[in-house]
């Protein structure tokens, strides 16, 4: 069985983002970029399926401008077998991403597709669910445990009340949550090997998908700033402040 994973290039999780002065977005020039952390978990899970003998090949797909290839190389260095880069400079929103991935999936025919539950840039949390809807496939979102058994899978999901387990038919879409696994670091020899692994180049036109954005960004602004308060010396002082100044207890 082939596993397909989608990987997105985003601002590194440790970078403090700055809103652009003209309020059109956030500053992306000279900012450290990295693979979306939830996608790293997806790549790791796919590689583990291969190591466990449940998958035969791991294909990493990324969509976007030329630098997205670096993100694919990261996946290849972790252990993915080959990459697919759908190159476009159009701003890609989740519905367009889902349509492009659907087109790639129809070509590749994977038995399972793993994507991050959300990207830490737009925080949309939509792509996996949309992709499942478009394909008419089952979806197991926010997965913290994945067990493939024959023609199906049993997936434990992180939900508001705790954990929920569902059984799904395959092929299916899995979206990863934080506790699914701990992604490995790529070793130096594997980084070198990754440079020789193939990356196929595609375009939205070749896939027959119109990636035009459906949401228009009117503006992006800083959130209201929270002022740092005061330090208190004793618990009694804290209780007095909460009772008499803040009046919350």
């Amino acid at each position: 069985m082939k596993v397909l994973v989608a990987v997105k290039r985003v601002i590194d999780a440790n970078v403090k983002v700055r809103v652009k002065a003209d309020n059109t977005g956030v500053e992306l020039t000279n900012v450290k970029m990295a693979m979306n952390p939830f996608d790293e978990i997806g790549v790791e899970e796919a590689i583990r399926l291969k190591e466990a003998g449940k998958a035969t090949e791991v294909v990493a797909v990324s969509l976007g401008g030329a630098p997205s290839q670096e993100t694919i190389r990261t996946a290849l260095a972790m252990g993915a077998d080959r990459g697919i880069h759908v190159q476009t400079d159009v701003e890609l929103q989740p519905l367009a991403v889902a349509k492009l991935l659907k087109a790639v999936i129809e070509k590749e025919q994977p038995g399972i597709v793993i994507v991050g539950k959300q990207a830490i840039d737009d925080d949309s949390n939509q792509t996996g669910q949309m992709l499942a809807g478009l394909l008419g496939w089952p979806q197991a979102t926010f997965a913290s445990k994945l067990n493939i058994e024959g023609e199906g899978a049993e997936v434990t999901r992180e939900v508001d009340g705790g954990l929920e387990t569902i059984r799904i038919k395959l092929p299916a879409i899995i979206t990863t949550d934080l506790r699914l696994n701990e992604p490995r670091y790529a070793s130096l020899p594997n980084i070198m090997k990754a440079k020789k692994k193939p990356i196929e180049a595609l375009t939205p036109e070749a896939l027959g998908v119109d990636p035009k954005p459906r949401l228009k960004t009117l503006k992006v602004v800083e959130p209201p700033k929270r002022q740092a308060g005061i330090k208190v010396k004793t618990v009694q002082e804290l209780v007095d402040k909460l009772r008499n100044d803040a009046k919350v207890i």
Partner: peptide
């Protein structure tokens, strides 16, 4: 925008071929 809505609504949006505005 809790684990129920996040799970169901994007699938609805895709089936209707419309964008979703999250959260």
């Amino acid at each position: 925008a809790d684990s129920f809505g996040k799970n169901v609504m994007p699938r609805v949006a895709a089936l209707l071929d419309v964008a979703q505005v999250s959260d």
